[in-house]
Measured scan of single mutants.
Amino acid sequence: TIDDAFRAIERAIQAENEGRYREALKHFLDGGEMIVTAAEKEASQKVRNLLLHKGKEVLEWAEHLAEWILE
């Protein structure tokens, strides 16, 4: 659900702030994927587009974090 997705993102932010970057990455990926999944089930085109945009933002952040971890 969207609530689960945002809880995962909150955990990711907390982990990132505490320097637990790999854990943060996992939570960002989980949250982003949950948002995209919820968007695919959404009946309203406007809400679907907003959710897809937010999911994409979260997944892009996860990608940047992963690249930073690997440096």
Score class of each variant (00 low, 15 high):
Glu60Lys: 13
Trp68Arg: 09
Ala43Glu: 11
Phe6Met: 09
Arg22Glu: 13
Ala24Pro: 02
Ala38Tyr: 07
Ile9His: 01
Arg22Gln: 10
Leu65Gln: 00
Glu23Leu: 02
Glu60Gln: 10
Ile9Ser: 00
Ala38Glu: 02
Ala12Ser: 01
Thr1Arg: 12
Asp30Pro: 01
Asp3Arg: 13
Glu67Val: 07
Glu71Met: 12
Met34Pro: 02
Ile2Val: 10
Glu18Tyr: 03
Leu59Asp: 00
Val36Met: 15
Gly55Tyr: 15
Arg48Val: 06
Glu40Thr: 15
Ala8Leu: 15
Asp3Leu: 14
Asp3His: 10
Glu40Val: 14
Trp61Leu: 05
Ala38Val: 06
Lys56Tyr: 11
Glu60Ile: 08
Leu70Ala: 13
Leu51Cys: 09
Glu16Phe: 15
Phe28Arg: 00
Val36Cys: 13
Lys54Ile: 15
Asp3Glu: 13
Leu29Trp: 10
Lys26Glu: 08
Ser44Met: 12
Val47Asn: 07
Thr37Trp: 05
Asp3Pro: 05
Arg48Tyr: 04
Glu60Cys: 12
Met34Ala: 10
Asp30Ala: 14
Gly19Leu: 02
Glu16Gly: 10
Lys26Met: 09
Lys46Pro: 07
Asn17Pro: 02
Leu29Tyr: 08
Leu25Met: 06
Gly55Leu: 15
Ala39Val: 10
Leu52Met: 08
Met34Trp: 09
Gln45Lys: 09
Ile69His: 06
Phe6Ala: 04
Lys56Pro: 04
His64Gly: 05
Leu51His: 01
Lys26Tyr: 08
Lys46Asn: 09
Ala5Lys: 01
Asn49His: 08
Arg48Met: 06
Leu70Met: 10
Ala5Ile: 12
Ile13Met: 04
Trp68Asp: 03
Ala62Thr: 03
Gly19His: 05
His64Tyr: 07
Arg7Ser: 08
Ala62Tyr: 04
Ile35Asn: 02
Leu51Gly: 01
Asn17Val: 13
Asp3Gly: 10
Leu29Phe: 07
Ile69Ser: 01
Glu16Ile: 15
His64Leu: 09
His64Trp: 08
Val47His: 04
Phe6Gln: 04
Asp3Ile: 13
Gly32Met: 15
Met34Gln: 06
Thr37Ile: 12
Glu60Asp: 09
Asn49Cys: 12
Lys41Tyr: 12
Gln14Tyr: 03
Ile35Ser: 02
His53Arg: 15
Gln45Leu: 10
Glu18Val: 08
Asp4Phe: 03
Ala39Tyr: 07
Ala62Lys: 00
Trp68His: 08
Gly32Val: 15
Leu59Lys: 02
Ala12Cys: 11
Glu42Met: 13
Tyr21Trp: 12
Arg22Val: 10
Ser44Cys: 13
Thr1Phe: 09
Ala62Val: 06
Asn17Ile: 13
Arg7Cys: 09
Leu29Thr: 06
